[in-house]
Design a protein around this nucleic acid. Structure first.
Length: 418
RNA sequence: GGCCCAUUCGUCUAGUGGCCUAGGACACCGCCCUCUCACGGCGGCGGCACGGGUUCGAAUCCCGUAUGGGCCUCCA
């Protein structure tokens, strides 16, 4: 039997990272088994639909690298089909009308259970199952009816979703059986929580795919990170390519307990990915990021500056702050400046030709010697005068890139009169 | 309240009865490297929620308790 899964977002807003996590696991499972992964928009609640959401969801998935097979489907398109099946259930006595709506008749005795692919056997007393509304009084099917119906019609073999759906599962199984269809395999994933143990939300930090993108995370780092929440190939491996994750992923190895979203670990992992990029690839990705952020800095200059920060930042978001001094004026904190040292530096740099890092280094070392001061004491005021901050890329390289004229101008602007 | 799910270092996890004196990674702390910040290297801190069983032997199996979460909508 060919595996077929589905990703079923509701178009109520941006794509939440928790949803991406669920979709990723569906996608990994299908891709690792030569199966199909469908995208179904569950929009039966028209009142909550957000216009831009459908496009945005697809864009977010594309950026993450999660693709899908066959055209996108919309649950609202299955309403007619759902009404027909509901009518059939009423005719069979399995459902009944109630104030204009149609309710499915749940059994009162016994229990409904299934072998959850990640949790094992789950059994729920049927007495807990109320007669759910399957068609609203306005004729639209509800989620609990449309979803299993579409799973049936689409030939879904595995329903991989969040644990908040566990209590819907026995109801959907009953409905499917009444329809004469054998239920798919269900797999319920643990939720993703914020650092405080509550459901991950806006106040914890970035939650939508767009936010992670705008913060300068690499999609492959995000995928790697997400894969490791609730799943691990072994006890050692943490850095894996998508291909490797696809190859090693199994539902059996998925954990059933909830996981906390650790932003610090994501930052570390993203930094690892960033540093592993070749200088060219790094600059390419950085340029794409800056373009998305509407930062129109000179491309060649950005390429030249990129290598200076590749080892220093964990997200592209940090780039502008780190090298802004190369693209605009600086406003140094004068209390960190030392006019005497700056005056001496101005003189020491004057004869340096050509203006390259190696020559600058020699001049700077000689200056330290001459002043009888330690490098860190001499470098600080120069760094602040030139970059506007006590934290910057390497000083020699920064000076070289800034250019001799600008560098000297910034140094002399705060130097003691001679 | 009812039903269901979960519980290994602060965090993500390895572990499926003896290999565990519980391993790895992030975070944190210290040292080294060093022009700042980082990176990198080395080392350290730190955990099987609790209580009963079962067993020669339990993080692993069973029961209970506690804690956290989910659902109980003509939401998905």
């Amino acid at each position: 039997m060919t595996v077929r899964v589905r990703m079923a977002p509701s178009p109520t807003g941006f794509l939440h990272i928790g949803g991406v996590h669920t979709f990723l696991f569906n996608w990994l499972y299908a891709r690792g088994r030569g199966g199909e992964c469908l995208l179904r928009i569950e929009n039966t609640d028209t009142s909550r639909e957000v216009t831009e959401a459908v496009d945005q969801i697809q864009r977010s998935l594309a950026w993450i690298g999660i693709d899908w097979d066959r055209p996108v489907t919309f649950q609202l398109d299955a309403m007619e089909r759902c009404r027909e099946l509901a009518a059939k259930l009423v005719a069979d006595g399995a459902a009944y009308e109630d104030e204009g709506a149609i309710r499915f008749r749940m059994p009162d005795d016994g229990s409904t259970g299934w072998d959850d692919a990640v949790r094992g056997r789950i059994e729920v007393p049927n007495a807990q199952l109320e007669d759910v509304v399957i068609v609203r009084s306005d004729g639209r099917a509800t989620y609990n009816f449309a979803s299993p119906v579409e799973d049936m019609d689409d030939g879904i073999t595995h329903v991989i979703r969040g644990e908040d759906h566990i209590s819907n599962t026995p109801k959907q199984i009953q409905i499917l059986r009444a329809l004469g269809h054998e239920p798919p395999v269900y797999a319920h994933l643990g939720s993703i929580l914020g650092p405080d143990g509550k459901k991950l939300s806006k106040r914890h930090g970035a939650v939508s795919v767009d936010e992670f993108r705008a913060a300068g995370y690499l999609s492959e780092a995000l995928v790697n990170f997400l894969a490791l929440i609730g799943w691990a190939p072994d006890g050692e491996t943490t850095e894996m390519t998508v291909a490797e994750i696809v190859e090693r992923f199994t539902l059996e190895a998925v954990s059933s307990s909830p996981g906390t979203f650790d932003y610090a670990k994501l930052d570390w992992l993203n930094g690892r990915y960033l540093r592993a990029l070749t200088p060219d690839a790094y600059a390419d990705r950085l340029l794409v990021f800056l373009h998305e952020q509407s930062i129109g800095w000179d491309k060649e200059r950005v390429r030249a500056a990129a290598p200076l920060v590749q080892e220093k930042i964990g997200r592209f978001e940090e780039f502008p702050g780190m090298v802004g001094f190369l693209f605009g004026f600086v406003d140094p904190d004068v209390t960190l400046l030392d006019p005497a040292i700056l005056a001496a530096a101005g003189k020491a740099f004057d004869p340096v030709e050509p203006w390259v890092a190696a020559g600058i280094e020699v001049a700077l070392k000689a200056l330290c010697e001459e002043l009888g001061r330690k490098p860190k004491e001499v470098f600080l005021p120069i760094r602040v005068a030139v970059t506007g901050s006590r934290i910057s890329p390497g000083l020699y390289e920064s000076l070289e890139l800034l250019g001799k004229d600008t560098s000297l101008a910034r140094i002399r602007a705060h130097a003691a009169a001679s």
